[in-house]
Nucleic acid binder design. Structure first.
Lengths: 173, 173
DNA sequence: TAGATATGAATGAATG
DNA sequence: CATTCATTCATATCTA
């Protein structure tokens, strides 16, 4: 948590030897620790942080450039469901959203079929980072042949629980 | 990320069966997924969130009750080092010279200076030599012959280093 | 429910 | 800095 603070609030990304020494000295108050630990921590943290960001930007990129050519690899236009009551903790999701959401997804799905260069684009833009590719389910890239039956799945029936093997659903909320 | 959005921005913590179904249906656009996956995701996320918070609060508790009887279990008052130039990415870290935290750092600085035989070199090299410096624990290796004054500032009793042991004692729930 | 075990994710440690 | 590899964690899951 301390390092996290230094990283996030302090903005430290690549501490130099001197900084590492001091940080190490400070942290050693809590237990055995070496400079390399601190070094690796920052290196890993920065890398994974950046990776996360890139992933995000990549998806954002898709949304901006192919808003209706394929389903967003990750984030489904927040504006969509948020304005449709998708996010609200409550049960708005239950009724009202069903229709609207269905609509959105339907659209996405329709357009899905045209997205084939998706991967190539990704590769072209972030070729070196294949790790990002793992985000997309290979079996259903963005153009899987899943029928647009999503809508039909919505008719939610409380009974569906068992079928899904959903563990004890604390019906609270 | 979609789930994260729902959790954070949407405030969804414990989706009910119905919600889970819809979320699952939506996510299924990206690949194979079952309701239980969504269910578990929220369970995990919430649990981890709670745990993180608990830990944080616990530390704060320590800080508030034993401000000078033991080393700060976690965060060394952000406000302090942030206003003292502790965090800044640059090298401001070097000239720590202020209040509370400063003490620690000032002392640390002194200490680090003693074990600085090849520090300057690596600072420039940034190669294998650079890492070598990090391999040693500043408090126990090159400077272990000199009692850490820092410790005196934080009267650490015996192995107070690991008071952090907070096993999954999920007393509640 | 309390163990025992399997497993995905996170993260430390390296390597080139 | 991108990747890889090994552990650790925290469940998910199964069983008595």
């Amino acid at each position: 948590m301390i390092l996290e603070e230094m990283y996030t609030r302090g903005g430290i990304r690549t501490p130099n030897a001197s900084q590492i020494q001091q940080i190490t000295a400070y942290l050693s108050l809590y237990g055995k620790i070496e400079g390399k630990n601190v070094f690796y921590w920052f290196q890993n943290h920065k890398a994974r942080d950046r990776q996360k960001l890139r992933k995000l930007l990549n998806h954002h990129h898709h949304l901006l450039n192919y808003p209706d050519s394929c389903p967003p690899p990750v984030l489904p236009q927040v504006s969509h469901y948020s304005s449709v009551g998708f996010l609200p903790q409550d049960g708005v999701l239950e009724d009202a959203s069903t229709q609207t959401m269905s609509y959105t997804w339907t659209v996405d799905h329709h357009l899905t079929e045209r997205c084939e260069m998706d991967k190539s684009i990704m590769t072209r833009t972030y070729g070196r980072d294949w790790m990002m590719m793992l985000d997309v389910d290979p079996t259903s890239h963005c153009c899987n042949n899943k029928p647009l039956k999503t809508l039909e799945l919505f008719p939610i029936t409380a009974t569906g629980l068992k079928d899904e093997h959903i563990p004890p659903t604390s019906t609270n909320n």
